[in-house]
């Protein structure tokens, strides 16, 4: 019998060959989850500027209003929306609710995510830009 090496097993969840909506939803959930954790750490690290007084923070805010930062902000919102909306989907499915509709729910989550991100991006650029 051939032993599957550990690293290969460990990366099994990334392998999308032969998978459908559910597998893709799971993969994206994980990637956005990892992204959000990284963001959380960065965010809390940046917040230390608040402890350094008004100048440090307001300088940072000025920089955060640059188009590049606002675009990254949009990316963050995209990730949050997907993760949050799919989180609701997964919670229902995980309790056995709506399983026959899971693929349609996935496309619904995708559509809502894109729509809400577009609205949020518009709002960000008009308010902050």
């Amino acid at each position: 019998m051939r032993e599957v090496p550990r690293w290969k097993r460990a990366s099994g969840w990334i392998d999308l060959r032969g998978r459908r909506e559910g597998g893709l939803a799971f993969l994206l959930m994980r990637l956005t989850g990892i992204g959000l954790v990284i963001y959380l750490f960065l965010h809390l690290y940046v917040l230390r500027l608040l402890a350094q007084g008004p100048e440090a923070w307001d300088a940072f805010i000025a920089m955060a209003k640059s188009p590049l930062f606002l675009a990254l902000d949009g990316l963050l919102i995209l990730g949050i929306l997907y993760h949050a909306l799919n989180g609701v989907r997964v919670t229902l499915l995980g309790l056995g609710i709506g399983v026959p509709h899971q693929a349609r729910l996935f496309w619904g989550v995708m559509a809502l995510t894109l729509l809400m991100t577009a609205i949020a991006a518009y709002a960000i650029f008009t308010i902050a830009g």
Binding site: P54, I61, K65, A84, A128
Partner: peptide, 22 residues
């Protein structure tokens, strides 16, 4: 879902000029 939504909304949209100043 509730907490983060409020966090995002308050930090982005409620304050004049978008992001909060010190």
């Amino acid at each position: 879902l509730i907490l983060l939504t409020l966090h995002m909304v308050f930090n982005h949209f409620v304050v004049e000029g978008g992001l909060r100043t010190y």
